[in-house]
Design a protein around this nucleic acid. Structure first.
Lengths: 350, 350
DNA sequence: GTGAAAGCGCTAACAA
DNA sequence: TTGTTAGCGCTTTCAC
């Protein structure tokens, strides 16, 4: 109570009224000046900015949001697994958002339903203006809850016919084709594919694109050489061991993601197989440390920056473009091969 | 305008008044129920929760913050370099914060002064209740700006005598001592240290702790074998090459951080030196992919989870414990050696 | 072009 | 124990 009284007089952080008083204008004029309303005269505007500086005034975002109904906060939900792809995706999304004056709420939901519910609640309570759900699976529960609250959403590889929902399509085809061509040009014809789990859209798409690319360059696809793994390092190790157990082995392995490829690198090393001399390995994602592996991993880059930008842009349009106008509802993110040290011509005898 | 009218009647998101009306109580009772005030009778409380569920009501955080003066938002500022230590630190901080009902604002400030200013502005405008500045340097500008706004802060290895400021002390000594003892027990006596840049407190501390540990186990410190690097992979490569250029070379290298160690791994590999048979390497940090390097890196773990917890706890106490009560102002985070595959006895002839 | 005044949805006195 | 009411700091009509 005493404290309250003191603050009132002394160290109260300045509000819009204090600025108005100092600039000898109304609070409406201060508000207009700050928000760049085109009507304020230069004379008053100057006085206002001067007062703002003098008082070291910061507008209160809460009050602003409360009255305007706009929070300038966006949510992002990703898988919270050990895959280093996602932290980097969040970082890119955050940077883009902040550059445009938005804040972000990040979800750590471990594809655990209870966490997901909490996440959604957090986002609704903070009045997010849009949610990017970049999980490559399990979109439905989020979709349903958020739709009720009329919150724009963007998904990856998941289409839904609602004006509030945008989709980012990932063009794996281009990068995968480049990788297969690269391998073929090196002289490989025995190419295996370590696939991702079939319950994830993106894994299935990647596998299909591998098959298509192989056919386009007229290379045979051996049934034994396409193995479902789980997008983890351990899965890569297991996949590699299955391949090694075969009597006829591939000279090159394309992996559905980088973690799988890193598992292959590890397993090959332990078995005394040299990469790339004895075996070529290609990943997909281009996670940050793909360049730090030994040898540095040749991989298909799925740019997190591009993906993040697309997600942000989709949400921004939903939030800022009036309902009756057309907005882009589909975005395409491409991939491309990054050559590093894990590919070489097949060994002579192979 | 038409839209406004429609929303007003039909699809307006329910507010506290709607809940009160449906439950036939006052809005104060609804507020008390939601916030767990101990005075509400079971009878009314039940009616209120029922109404909340029925209307699918979510409290508006903006309104709450506006009136209560508490945002339940914390800020975190870290270095935004390629060092993978930091994203993980953020993730841990975020998880802890969310678990306690806080949101976080992340700074991407690249130790660029303009970005820093923007970051601080963002945080002040959103009324953060505390800021964790885990940059290991450049604390002063933040300190000064935030102090004016009476915002609690926590720093790493940076003490400042203000009731609003807490400090996290990092006990590198324990882990470094363990590493040196480990190496000595393996038979190494020729141990080099690839230091971090001397303008970062933590780098200096690490180097001092290395020197102290060496003395404690009675091992000589060769001047040539302590080299200032820059905590990057490239710096590690350069440091290794300087060591190799010497006529007398170490059999083991302790690095000031993991990125440096990974550079050494890389450079050693390219020179045909086998780790750990020909050379033992130890890192410090235990970044996520230290276990994915070849060989997996033996390193001194500085737990990001512990650091994040300490930072959160420091801020939480500042925010929640009344001014006149004592709060913990110093926190200690320890380190410990993690044995993996990059250390072994020195080669026979060495 | 500018100002007065009405709330945005909620919490916390204060009254009953 | 419950209700009434006064704002929190701001944006936005609506007058002037």
């Amino acid at each position: 109570m005493a404290r309250r009284a003191i603050r009132k007089t002394d160290d109260k952080t300045p509000d819009i009224r204090a600025v108005a008083a100092l600039a000898k204008v109304s609070i409406a004029t201060v508000s207009r000046t700050i928000n760049g309303a085109p009507v304020v005269s230069d004379r008053l505007s100057k006085r206002v900015w001067q007062a703002i500086k003098q008082l070291n005034y910061f507008p209160n975002t809460n009050a602003r949001s409360l009255v305007s109904g706009r929070s300038r906060i966006l949510g992002i939900i990703v898988e919270n697994v050990t895959n280093p792809f996602f932290p980097d995706l969040i970082k890119n999304f955050e940077e883009t958002a902040v550059a445009h004056g938005y804040e972000i709420l990040v979800s750590s939901s471990n594809s655990n339903p209870a966490n997901l519910a909490t996440t959604i609640r957090r986002m609704i309570e903070r009045k997010v203006e849009g949610v990017a759900m970049l999980t490559f699976g399990e979109e439905e529960p989020v979709l349903n809850q958020l739709a009720v609250h009329d919150i724009p959403m963007v998904f990856a590889e998941f289409r839904f016919d609602d004006p509030n929902v945008s989709t980012i399509l990932l063009d794996y085809k281009t990068g995968i084709k480049q990788a297969i061509v690269h391998l073929a040009e090196l002289g490989h014809s025995k190419i295996a594919f370590l696939a991702g789990p079939h319950n994830i859209h993106s894994a299935v798409t990647r596998e299909n694109d591998f098959r298509a690319a192989m056919q386009e360059v007229n290379l045979p696809i051996r049934k034994n050489w396409v193995i479902e793994c789980d997008h983890t390092l351990k899965g890569g190790v297991a996949g590699f061991e299955k391949l090694q157990a075969l009597s006829s082995r591939p000279t090159a392995i394309l992996c559905s993601n980088d973690m799988t490829a890193i598992g292959v690198l590890r397993a090959a090393y332990l078995q005394g197989l040299r990469v790339p001399q004895d075996l070529s390995v290609v990943g997909l994602d281009d996670v940050d440390f793909a360049e730090f592996t030994l040898p540095p991993l040749t991989t298909i880059r799925l740019s997190r920056a591009d993906l993040a930008h697309a997600a942000f842009e989709a949400l921004r349009q939903q939030a800022e473009i009036p309902e009756d106008q057309n907005k882009q509802r589909e975005f395409l993110v491409s991939t491309s091969l990054v050559l590093r040290g894990s590919t070489a011509p097949p060994p002579a005898g192979a």
